[in-house]
Computed example of a mutant assay.
Amino acid sequence: MSRTLIVTNDFPPRQGGIETFVHAMATRFPHDAVVVYTSSEPGAPAHDAALPFPVIRDPAPMLLPTPRITSRAAALARRYACDSVWFGAAAPLGLMAARLRRETGAARIVATTHGHEVWWARTPGARSLLRRIGAATDAVTYLGASTRGPIASAIGPAAAGRMARLVPGVDSEAFRPGLDGRAVRERYGLAGRRRGLEVEGLGIVFLEAAAAGLPVLVGDSGGAPDTVRDGETGHVIDGRSPDVVAERLIALLTTPEAARAMGEKGRAWVAEEWGWDRSYERLARLLARDP
């Protein structure tokens, strides 16, 4: 029977976008077809006990591609007869791929990229390490055109030819029209995003808004445009121009029927194209012996 070893630092109870992504994928595998190897985290024993598949926690608070960590990952792959490996985030753990293949005979190794690998791709020393990851894996995944370009350039033409798109999903039952988020915003003191230097690989918040039946305005940078069908479910605009932002907002606010129609189209699009099950099916195909 085919079984996958997931190697990741990003797994609950730690919270974050990648953690949500990896957990959602892990829980969609058949329960006897997946094993998770991850770092230690406060509250992990109670969390892991509720899962129907093995979660092995390393004592380290962060997994790094050291000889010890790689040896343990290989031992786990052999112990559980795993014939495929998925790195929940390609950098840096994907640097273990070549040794894992040699020592375990893994038939398929897939490494998933997010926004932070773009920084690796643009930094000389890290760029060469990303190339090693590309050479040692069967597929490097990407979120959209904005992240694929720099990562493909870094990993080289052969590995770039094996790249595949793999995106997070949206729960259209959790995000639905009519929800009032004021209580949550007040509880956590949320009043808007802070500025940061991280690359916006996708912008899942825009898809969640669309799932809630809202028209969406996104800036034309990073992966945000991938989350909108421009002119159908919302608009892609120059986010640096207050006049443009104001113009589009006024148009939506003064034409409620048109805005409502955009929201309805957005919700239908998310339900059809951005479900978690669809993302899992793509990952399962990448990990299969004959993808």
Rank of each mutant, 00 (worst) to 15 (best):
residue 2 S to Y: 04
residue 9 N to G: 13
residue 10 D to L: 14
residue 12 P to H: 13
residue 13 P to E: 10
residue 26 A to W: 00
residue 32 D to K: 08
residue 36 V to C: 03
residue 37 Y to M: 11
residue 38 T to D: 02
residue 40 S to P: 08
residue 42 P to R: 13
residue 44 A to K: 03
residue 47 H to A: 11
residue 55 V to E: 05
residue 60 A to D: 13
residue 61 P to T: 13
residue 61 P to E: 11
residue 64 L to Q: 15
residue 69 I to Y: 00
residue 75 A to S: 15
residue 83 D to N: 15
residue 91 A to T: 11
residue 93 L to Y: 03
residue 105 G to M: 12
residue 110 V to W: 01
residue 119 W to I: 08
residue 125 G to L: 15
residue 126 A to C: 08
residue 126 A to T: 11
residue 146 S to Q: 09
residue 148 R to N: 09
residue 158 A to I: 14
residue 158 A to D: 15
residue 159 A to N: 06
residue 161 G to T: 12
residue 161 G to P: 10
residue 162 R to H: 14
residue 163 M to R: 10
residue 163 M to N: 10
residue 166 L to P: 00
residue 168 P to G: 07
residue 170 V to R: 00
residue 172 S to D: 14
residue 175 F to D: 03
residue 179 L to D: 07
residue 188 Y to S: 09
residue 190 L to N: 06
residue 191 A to P: 04
residue 201 G to D: 05
residue 204 I to W: 01
residue 207 L to M: 13
residue 213 G to Q: 02
residue 222 G to R: 00
residue 222 G to Y: 00
residue 223 G to F: 03
residue 224 A to M: 14
residue 225 P to N: 09
residue 229 R to H: 07
residue 231 G to L: 04
residue 234 G to F: 00
residue 238 D to R: 10
residue 239 G to Y: 07
residue 239 G to N: 05
residue 245 V to S: 02
residue 254 T to A: 05
residue 261 A to I: 00
residue 264 E to T: 09
residue 270 V to W: 01
residue 272 E to P: 02
residue 273 E to P: 02
residue 285 R to F: 04
residue 286 L to W: 02
